[in-house]
Design a binder for these strands. Structure first.
Length: 463
RNA sequence: GGCCCCUUCAUCUAGCGGUCCAGGAUGCAAGGUUUUCAUCCUUGUCACAGGGGUUCGAGUCCCCUAGGGGUCACCA
């Protein structure tokens, strides 16, 4: 049985890189019919917030990643950690260190001045004398002093770290609270985690955690350290590169399946395949196929995937999602034609909402450049004649009927299509570009079409 | 700075010693479709970081250099 986990610390929103590691863990567990667990790493009482935890869970819900069981909160388990600290103390595998923070800082400074690697000098490791007055000790674990710590990483291969690179690190602060590397090892072991897939910024934590595993006699899991996601400039991912917060993607009009598809292909691939449904991801994902090198965030590709998923979404779903963007089409009589048109042309829901609004609402202003291009010569006159022709026409309903009318109009006037197309476009949506005019007129109807033409004509006359 | 990791088109990647004068996708460019824009279709553009080895043969293995990243807390 494969058991994986995602273990964020609740200090802010869920980061896009975090979502990718969570996804990898999720897929690997699901592929093997195993379990995917969530653990909230909130041992640093001063830095966590309940809102952050909420935000993380909300993001999980949005992308549709389900986890098994309730989230485990480390802050609920301090007694458990304490019992392990006592055990290690009793067995002589950990010890009290009475060095104050100030002394430690001083030692570090001196070492750096000598161009040495700053490290704890082990002065209390075998201390038997009387402890100094008034100092609350921290607890340190005895790390091996000689030899190497070796482990297999499923992505990077064999990792060898010399024992003297690993300090007797602190497992409990002077206030008694346990520290990260200690509790991670305990929780992973106790929660039965078999495969740890995490960011490679944790690579150096692994030997420390191995020290804990060994001191406590726990069995080691498999480790996979996945390279980070870099920003578009090849530097660390920042706000400039789109967004870091997963929920921002919802706000910007991305579909969760597009985001997941984008993320799964960052560092992982399956031959030439680009599009993966969640089922396919689950069927094909294997952490040992993850690349060893870092990859860059690429907005264009995300956009392309998003447009793909929008095109392939049923209209009803799009109508529902569009409500967050102020467009209410669920019971609109032109819903199907509107969505059929715009799902083909838009890359995000936000863009879709904006363009649908252009059709549904009478333009408030006209694009200046478009005005110059479209309204030169006798354009106003032509537009006016076209309005007249609309008025004289009998009932019009379908896009093709409107289209026929335009054809008759240009034939009768002996002008090119552009002569009426451009001004009409300007009148209807306030700019050049946009969908088929027959479609637009059919959606808004004859009366509104005439009204919009007259509005533009009036606007020109006033200038 | 020490230690560790990484290095194929602009970007995501395929490639697991010969089938690679390096394939796909995005982007970009041109053409086609369209009354316009977008979509869509077609074509094109662009890479094995550099230098040494090993081998009959190297993008693929080894070493060095360079560049990038990570890490060195009573943070997680």
């Amino acid at each position: 049985m494969i058991v994986t986990r995602f273990a964020p610390s609740p200090t802010g929103f869920l980061h896009i890189g975090g979502l990718r590691t969570a996804l990898f863990n999720y897929l690997w567990a699901r592929r093997n019919g195993g379990e995917f667990k969530l653990r909230i790493e909130d041992t640093d009482l001063s830095r966590n917030s309940a809102e952050a935890t909420k935000a993380i869970l909300e993001a999980f819900e949005w992308v549709g990643m389900d986890y098994d069981g309730d989230p485990v909160y480390q802050s609920d388990r301090f007694d458990l950690y304490k019992s392990y600290i006592i055990k290690l103390l009793d067995e002589g595998k950990a010890y009290k260190c009475y060095m104050s923070k100030e002394e430690l800082d001083k030692l570090r400074e001196e070492q750096m001045a000598r161009k040495e690697r700053p490290r704890y000098d082990g002065r209390y490791r075998d201390f038997t004398g009387t402890p100094p007055e008034g100092v609350e000790p921290v607890i340190r674990i005895k790390a091996p002093r000689h030899g190497e710590i070796v482990f297999e990483d499923g992505i990077k291969g064999t990792i060898v770290i010399k024992a003297d690179e690993v300090d007797d690190f602190i497992i409990a602060r002077s206030d008694g609270t346990p520290t990260y590397n200690f509790v991670v090892a305990i929780d992973d072991a106790l929660m039965g985690i078999t495969d740890v897939i995490r960011g490679d910024d944790h690579l150096y934590n692994t030997p420390k955690q191995i020290v804990v595993y060994e001191a406590l006699g726990f069995k080691l899991p498999r480790f996979y350290h996945v390279p980070m996601i870099l920003g578009e400039g090849g530097k660390k991912l920042s706000k400039r590169d789109g967004a870091a917060d997963v929920m921002d993607y919802k706000r910007m009009g991305y579909l969760p399946e597009a985001l997941l598809n984008f993320l799964v292909r960052l560092g992982w691939s399956h031959g030439d395949q680009e599009i993966f449904s969640k089922e396919e991801m689950i069927e094909l994902f294997d952490p040992s196929d993850i690349n060893a090198s870092a990859s860059q965030y690429n907005l264009d590709k995300l956009l392309w995937l998003n447009s793909h998923y929008i095109k392939n979404s049923p209209n009803e779903r799009l109508a529902t999602l569009l409500e967050d963007f102020g467009i209410y089409l669920l019971s609109h009589d032109k819903r199907e034609i509107l969505l059929d048109i715009f799902k083909e042309r838009c890359k995000t829901l936000a863009e879709m909402a904006e363009q649908i609004k252009e059709v549904l609402e009478t333009p408030e202003a006209y694009d200046e450049k478009a005005m110059k291009r479209a309204m030169k010569g006798d354009a106003a006159e032509i537009l006016s004649d076209f309005a007249q022709m609309l008025k004289d026409a009998k009932e019009l309903h379908l896009p093709v009927e409107y289209h026929k009318l335009m054809e008759d109009f240009v034939a009768q006037k002996e002008i090119g299509f552009g002569k009426i197309g451009m001004p009409l476009r300007l009148a209807l949506i306030g700019r050049l570009g946009g969908p088929d005019l027959g479609d637009v007129m059919s959606i808004i109807g004859k009366e509104e079409t005439i009204a919009r033409i007259e509005k533009l004509l009036g606007f020109i006359a006033d200038r």
